[in-house]
């Protein structure tokens, strides 16, 4: 799809989220809700010790949160899109100079960092950066600039991963 058209449509979805629910889109929040629920049910003794898991013990299951449902929609929507465009299929994408194994190791590391960073930034590229930019929030735009700024600063050192 034309990236500008895709962006325009994404903008309309974001606008609709603001108009209907008064909030932007987000992805990492759902991951947090999922984790909190899992840890809370598997190891309640452990969860009780940290205020981070307090949400699990307050009434209203975090699994019924807005973001979890949004994520469920994302899964449905992207599967649908992948299916009609014929992009379904197991595959590991990696740069020409690395093996799939290396790629998976770095993918795990990247995911770990992103999961950690999204907690500090109170949102990921969609929750903080994109939605923050739409409402012109200082925090959101700051986070966005730092994410991409850091990316560009360190891109040179990790170039073997991608090109």
């Amino acid at each position: 799809m034309n990236p500008y058209l895709a962006g325009f449509l994404l903008g309309l979805v974001l606008l609709a989220a603001f108009v209907i629910s008064g909030r932007g889109l987000g992805a990492s929040g759902a991951a947090k809700d999922l984790l909190v629920t899992t840890v809370g049910s598997v190891a309640p003794d452990y969860a009780e010790k940290s205020t981070f898991y307090a949400e699990y013990f307050t009434p209203g299951s975090p699994m019924k949160s807005w973001l979890v449902f949004l994520l469920a929609g994302v899964i449905v929507g992207s599967f649908f899109s992948g299916a009609i465009s014929g992009r379904l299929g197991f595959k590991t994408e990696h740069g020409p100079k690395i093996t799939p194994g290396t790629r998976l190791v770095f993918s795990l590391a990247g995911g770990l960092l992103f999961g950690l960073g999204a907690q500090f930034g109170r949102g990921c590229t969609s929750g903080a950066a994109l939605s923050g930019m739409a409402v012109l929030s200082t925090g959101g735009i700051l986070t966005m600039m730092v994410i991409f700024g850091t990316g560009y600063l360190v891109a040179y050192f990790f170039r073997k991963l991608w090109i």
Partner: peptide, 8 residues
């Protein structure tokens, strides 16, 4: 200002 829950 009515607090609106949000963010992720």
């Amino acid at each position: 200002i009515t607090p609106v829950p949000g963010g992720c």
